[in-house]
Design a protein around this nucleic acid. Structure first.
Length: 552
RNA sequence: UGUCCUAUGGUGUAAUGGUAACACUGCAGAUUUUGAUUCUGCCUUUCUAGGUUCGAAUCCUAGUAGGACAACCA
């Protein structure tokens, strides 16, 4: 109870509503349109809507806003449900705007009967023209003054399939002179002879967003209908419909959508990346979709933590992708199993280690979790270490391997570089080292203190694997400006596949659920492309690397 | 040149008329058998101008800047 975290503006509104007795409990909803996969921005909304109900006592519905049959598919419905569940939330009811088509149709008739809606025969472009501009009032056309009886008849004919797509629409009769464009007689029903993923061919007229969303909220008695800022101008209409339909008064509130550096957060743009093959699919690990992040190795906990840290407000924001990375690292550091993997191998021969001999060494699975136990690793005469861990001419402050220098092999022995073997072109191909037998980890009596500790893999026992390293999808921070040209900023090096990679043998038992830290490299998880013969690992995120900065 | 929304360190978010704080980033150091983790310290902030008030980041007015709105999309 001492936990006094300050409230964001929505929590404050709800808190006040509850204290004032406006509601006994709250109902929120997460209302995706099933026309694409969920992304990080949706995660923010999901955490908000479900989080609010959890915090203040109430419930959250999952409602699909499926009023446009031409863009919506069952595949998307399934992926959305899966993603919400994976994020760790449970909805009170699974609902669809299409469940309300009958009711919504009744609402439309009620509006017509009240003289507040009319059938318009105009072409789409003409309606747009007649609406005027933000600075110039719209003008009425002849259809606006049709009689109630005629409107009823025409609307019935629209429903009966008498007309073709685009021939007629039903419009609300609001105010053509309103400074709010959305109040200038918005279209509320249009004709679409299209198969709907749930209602099939039952309907050929479908309600528009403005005539479906608020009404659905109302039907479900949603108390706080939370959406993003671009819907602010819709609020006046939202309230107008509720008032004139005389239905449950849900209230709409708006918060700023999430923007993250070096990525795009719009379903339209993400769809383009998919259809135009810039990525391999919605779950390509470079995408900011929930499914991609899951495949890449992000944990639901880390995404929730991120959503918690970015806060909720009404001002435009651009969150540093570094914060997301911080959140995953923080979680993965606690739970990831440590393994040694050499991504860019350099052969090392321990010249004073007997030929043919090998021994088993043990190493902790996770120093952050003492219950995680340890695993065994074979050590032998020939090893691989990272190319980066040797410098023939060491830089200042470099404390890894160099001619005549010593390092410790993690969980093994201290070795000293005695000889550098090169090929004809002068490239270092092999190192001859000696080891200090009494320096074995856990029973070191050598008295030698070395600063450098590097990872290694026994050559004879090494498991070849593939590693996929991901970088940011775009090479500029702020993609908000560009529209169609956002694709010119695509980072051509967003994916690097490494195929000469050697892992310690225990990694062969990796499962899809495992999270690994390849020591000194980064966090990884098994990719779905893995086969029995070839394990493929995705790099979720690198480890922080102060040395990389030092080098610059 | 209509209406609406917004403006606090580099990035986010708090401070609810009473000493501007927290996180991330950055920088410096300590510890470390991961140059990781952990720990310590430091840098940097109220868009401008008026007004109300004993007192303003907070309230008011004007300006400035950014954003949203003219889909038979949501």
């Amino acid at each position: 109870m001492a936990e006094e975290k300050s409230l964001n503006f929505l929590e404050e509104i709800i808190d006040n509503d509850l204290k004032a007795g406006n509601y006994q409990s709250i109902t929120t909803r997460f209302p995706p349109e099933p026309n694409g996969y969920l992304h990080l921005g949706h995660a923010k909304s999901i955490c908000l809507n479900f989080g609010l109900a959890l915090r203040f006592g109430g419930k959250t519905n999952l409602r699909f806003d499926d009023t446009n049959p031409v863009t919506e598919e069952t595949e998307y419905v399934e992926s959305i449900k899966n993603d919400v569940k994976w994020l760790g939330f449970t909805w009170a009811n699974e609902l669809y705007a299409s469940d309300y088509f009958e009711q919504l149709h009744g609402f439309a008739i009620k509006l017509i009967e009240k003289g507040l809606a009319y059938v318009d025969d105009s072409k789409s472009e003409d309606i747009a023209l007649q609406k005027g501009t933000p600075t110039k009032a719209g003008v009425a056309n002849v259809y606006r003054s049709r009689s109630i009886e005629e409107n009823l008849k025409l609307f019935a004919d629209m429903k009966a399939g008498v007309y073709k797509d685009g021939e007629k629409v039903l419009r609300a009769k609001v105010d053509l002179a309103s400074p709010n464009m959305h109040m200038r007689d918005p279209v509320i029903y249009r004709i679409k002879h299209a198969y709907h993923h749930r209602t099939g061919d039952t309907w050929c007229i479908y309600p528009m967003y403005d005539f479906a969303h608020g009404q659905s909220d109302s039907i479900e008695q949603v108390t706080h209908s939370i959406c993003t800022l671009e819907f602010v101008p819709h609020r006046e209409l939202y309230d107008w419909f509720i008032k004139n339909l005389e239905i449950y008064p849900s209230k709409q509130y708006e918060f700023a959508r999430l923007n993250v550096t070096y990525t795009v957060m719009s379903k339209r743009k993400l769809l383009q990346l998919v259809t135009e093959k810039y990525v391999t699919g919605w779950d390509d690990p470079r995408m900011p979709t929930i499914s991609a992040m899951r495949r890449r190795g992000y944990t639901p906990e880390s995404i929730r933590d991120f959503c918690d840290r970015i806060g909720i407000a009404k001002r435009e924001n651009l969150i540093d992708i570094g914060l997301l990375e911080f959140c995953v690292r923080e979680h993965l550091n606690k739970i990831a199993t440590r393994r040694m993997v050499v991504t860019d191998p350099l052969k090392v021969v321990i010249t004073n280690y007997p030929e043919g001999k090998s021994e088993i060494l043990t190493s902790e699975n996770n120093p952050e979790d003492h219950d995680s136990g340890s695993r065994e690793m074979p050590f032998s005469r020939q090893l691989y270490i990272e190319q980066d861990d040797f410098m023939e001419v060491p830089a200042k402050k470099y404390f890894r391997l160099a001619p005549g220098q010593m390092v410790r092999l993690k969980s093994a022995y201290i070795i000293k570089c005695e000889e550098v073997i090169k090929d004809g072109s002068g490239k270092v191909t092999e190192l001859h080292c000696t080891y200090v037998p009494e320096s074995k980890s856990g029973s070191d009596v050598s008295g030698i203190n070395v600063k450098g500790v590097i990872h290694w893999v026994s050559a004879a026992h090494a498991l070849p694997i593939e590693i996929r390293q991901y970088d940011r999808l775009f090479n500029i921070e702020d993609l908000s400006a560009g529209d169609e040209d956002f694709k010119v900023h695509i980072n051509p090096n967003s994916l690097t596949v490494l195929n000469t990679v050697f892992a310690e043998p225990s990694l062969k038992d990796a499962t899809a659920e495992d999270r690994f830290q390849f020591m000194r490299i980064g966090y990884f998880c098994l990719d779905t492309d893995s086969t029995k013969d070839k394990l493929v690992f995705n790099r979720t995120v690198t480890l922080r690397d102060m040395w990389a900065k030092e080098k610059k």
